[in-house]
């Protein structure tokens, strides 16, 4: 062994994970950090160069919006990290950590977006990425509106952009467009063709505000609908409602507060996800914890994460 050349690798690069063992000897997948799935064209070019130089014949687009370089020899880790770094491209995480948040396209160019999901994803990625949970993985997703393309409730914490509508009856011209646009029928047409709003069916999608020709409908509140405890995989759970109209600037603190509870309550339970911890402790325990710091946004009561029947395995 004395004449064998010792491979040197900066182990610091591996701290957050993101280097995933493949089937073949010496080969790894390198998962890239792409919060919200937004990839600048210049970074994309650099990734293509690095993939061509160190990777296989293709890259994989992961279901969580990452680009994964495949067939990377571990001896090249330092070069891959360094060359990606020239375009400020970082490596993602794996394992029992806060993962890179996913998000829809956001509201800058997508006409459905109500809240800037891209901005939130970047902020959470910057402040919480890679935080170790001590128990299991921790996934966060941001949807800009209740159409929820990112399937927010299948994440440990899912955020869904929402606005609560209000009507200025003086400005209403009785055109009927809001009632026609309202899919859940929270707005119906009453006397004189004026809209009649009922609170219960409203899902806070804002379609009435978007279609209203005179701005008679406007937003009274804006923020995120927050569902907690979801996951997919072997035993899927759908997260349930813990907060409404949470302002964008409270998102990071809110997640940190959930993490604090999770770290504490899952102690000694082994490799357990947040949703199963909530089922064990009861949803009220987490709700009470969150109410201390977020009294004006937490809901009065909630239910445990909902089990999805996969019909396979008992």
């Amino acid at each position: 062994m004395s004449d064998a050349k010792q491979t040197k690798i900066d182990l610091g690069n591996l701290k957050a994970g993101g280097f995933i063992k493949e089937r073949g000897k010496d080969l790894f997948t390198v998962r890239l950090r792409v919060p919200g799935g937004r990839m600048s064209v210049s970074r994309l070019k650099k990734i293509a160069q690095v993939a061509e130089k160190y990777g296989g014949e293709f890259v994989h687009l992961s279901v969580r919006q990452s680009i994964e370089l495949i067939n990377v020899n571990y001896k090249n880790f330092d070069f891959v990290v360094e060359e990606l770094g020239e375009a400020a491209q970082k490596v993602a995480s794996c394992g029992a950590r806060v993962r890179v948040p996913v998000a829809c396209g956001g509201c800058e160019y997508n006409p459905n977006g109500l809240v800037d999901s891209q901005k939130s994803a970047l902020e959470v990625d910057e402040k919480l990425f890679g935080t170790t949970t001590g128990h299991h993985k921790f996934k966060v997703a941001f949807a800009g509106c209740p159409f929820d393309c990112p399937k927010s409730a299948t994440n440990d914490i899912g955020f869904q952009g929402a606005i609560y509508p209000q009507l200025d009856m003086q400005a209403c011209i009785s055109c009927g467009l809001c009632a026609k646009s309202c899919v859940p029928k929270a707005i119906v047409t009453g006397e004189d063709n004026k809209p009649v709003f009922s609170d219960a069916p409203c899902i806070w999608c804002g379609d009435c505000v978007k279609v209203c020709p005179t701005s008679a409908w406007s937003e009274a509140r804006r923020g995120y609908t927050v569902r907690i405890g979801g996951k997919w995989g072997r035993n899927p759970l759908v997260g349930t409602l813990f907060a409404t109209f949470l302002p964008e600037d409270k998102v990071v603190d809110f997640i940190a507060d959930v993490l604090e509870w999770y770290k504490l309550k899952a102690e000694g339970l082994g490799r357990i996800r947040l949703g199963d911890t909530i089922i064990k402790e009861g949803p009220q325990a987490l709700l009470d914890h969150l109410r201390i710091r977020f009294p004006e946004f937490t809901v009065a009561e909630t239910i445990a994460p909902q089990v999805i029947a996969t019909q396979v395995g008992k």
Binding site: I173, S174, C175, G176, L177, K180, V211, P213
Partner: peptide
């Protein structure tokens, strides 16, 4: 930017 007037 068009001005919607009504829907029937």
């Amino acid at each position: 930017g068009h001005k919607l007037i009504g829907l029937k």
